[in-house]
Amino acid sequence: LVFGVIVTWICCYKGYHADRMATGVSRATTEAVVLSSALILAFDYFLTSILL
């Protein structure tokens, strides 16, 4: 559930602030995927270190 919220927030933010042309949308999509993946890995690390 938490990972879904992270992905949703990042994708909505990047989508709202994307440039109006196709290159801006493709760049925002790529940035959203990369940032979501990195934050999920980081959050998973911190969550695991807290629980163990």
Rank of each mutant, 00 (worst) to 15 (best):
L1H: 15
V2I: 12
V2H: 04
V2M: 07
V2Y: 11
V2G: 09
V2S: 08
F3R: 09
G4I: 02
G4P: 10
G4A: 06
G4K: 01
V5L: 14
V5R: 04
V5Y: 12
V7I: 15
V7P: 11
V7C: 14
V7D: 13
T8Y: 15
T8F: 15
T8M: 15
W9D: 05
W9E: 10
W9I: 15
W9P: 10
W9N: 13
I10P: 07
I10L: 11
I10F: 12
C11D: 13
C11M: 14
C11Y: 15
C11E: 14
C11N: 14
C12W: 13
C12P: 10
C12M: 13
C12H: 13
Y13V: 15
Y13E: 12
Y13W: 15
K14W: 11
K14T: 10
K14M: 12
G15C: 07
G15H: 06
G15K: 06
G15V: 07
G15R: 04
G15S: 10
Y16C: 12
Y16P: 06
H17Q: 14
A18K: 06
A18N: 03
A18H: 05
A18C: 12
A18M: 08
A18T: 06
D19A: 04
D19S: 07
R20L: 02
R20T: 05
M21C: 12
A22G: 03
A22T: 01
A22E: 02
T23R: 05
T23K: 05
T23W: 06
G24Q: 03
V25D: 00
V25L: 03
S26V: 07
S26D: 03
R27V: 02
R27M: 07
R27Y: 00
R27D: 00
A28H: 01
T29C: 11
T30C: 10
E31P: 04
E31M: 09
E31T: 04
E31F: 04
A32E: 02
A32L: 10
A32V: 08
A32P: 11
V33A: 11
V33H: 00
V33G: 03
V33Y: 01
V33L: 07
V34Y: 11
V34W: 10
V34E: 08
L35G: 07
L35N: 05
L35M: 11
L35I: 11
S36M: 06
S36I: 08
S36D: 07
S36W: 07
S37L: 13
S37Q: 04
A38V: 15
A38D: 09
L39K: 10
L39C: 12
I40K: 02
I40L: 10
L41G: 06
L41Y: 01
L41D: 08
L41I: 04
L41V: 08
A42Y: 08
D44I: 01
D44Y: 06
D44N: 04
D44H: 05
Y45F: 09
Y45V: 05
F46G: 05
F46Q: 00
F46D: 00
F46R: 01
L47N: 08
T48V: 10
T48N: 02
T48E: 01
T48Y: 06
T48F: 09
T48K: 11
S49I: 09
S49C: 03
S49T: 08
I50N: 00
I50F: 14
I50M: 11
I50S: 02
I50E: 00
I50G: 06
L51W: 01
L52P: 12
L52A: 04
L52D: 02
L52I: 05
